[in-house]
Amino acid sequence: NPLPGGCSLLEIERITQSVVKSHIETSQYSTEELKRMAWTLYNPEETRSYQTKSAEVMWQQCAIHITNAIQYVVEFAKRISGFMDLCQNDQIILLKAGCMDVLLIRMCRAYNPINNTLLFDGKFATPQFFKALGCDDLVNAVFDFAKSLSRIQMSEEDMALFSAAVLLSPDRPWLTDVLKIQKLQDKVYVALQRCLQKQGASEEKLAKMVSKLPIMKSICNLHIDKLQFFRLVHPETAYTFPPLYREVFGS
């Protein structure tokens, strides 16, 4: 039977393997490691010490962690078959526009819904832990998103393919070869659909995943707004943020 988008079964199998392999190879922590760490929480004293840091120090630390994670996302993208065939202009646009989305999807692996905690610097932390950042709305939005995504119970394969589909969004502004990216994304979505079918997942699972896209966009925008405000208030500190962070989130 012909598959949607005119792609062959072999092509779909190939892209599934490539995306899942690159996701696993470029995840900062394996599922086993995350399981082992899930109950390693910051104690009240440690939490207080983070809460009483200055906004500058806490922002700097978060920027470093995000930058580290971005490097893995770049590597994830590079290993998706077809991504490196795009022109470098498009590769950069897709990464700049989509890496925060991918980070948000990946983050749900490092989220514990039982106690609403998230892995940060080796231990699990509550939303209150990030008080010093001075952006409770952003922090709460990130935790709420992680909670809602964890409810979908995505497998590693789902997560890999969903991340790739989001990264390969052909509607990002200033792209050169929209059609090529559209074709790649179509293939990834077909692969994701097949993967869900194989698992015997309900039809709505994909719809549930796709319904998270606007929330992800609003979190990305909120992060940029907060960063711009931080830059205004603390220009010297913002200037010392890792160069890659400044490149990705600069205008």
């Binding site: 190879e25 470029t26 490097q71 893995y72 770049v74 590597e75 590079k78 490196m84 470098q88 590769q91 950069i92 990464l95 700049k96 160069p243 890659l244 490149e247 990705v248 600069g250």
Partner: peptide
Amino acid sequence: KEKHKILHQLLQNSTSPVDL
């Protein structure tokens, strides 16, 4: 290119931080 120097480098590098 200058504006995205590091991204360009990361995309061109065959050995990435992940491998190191």
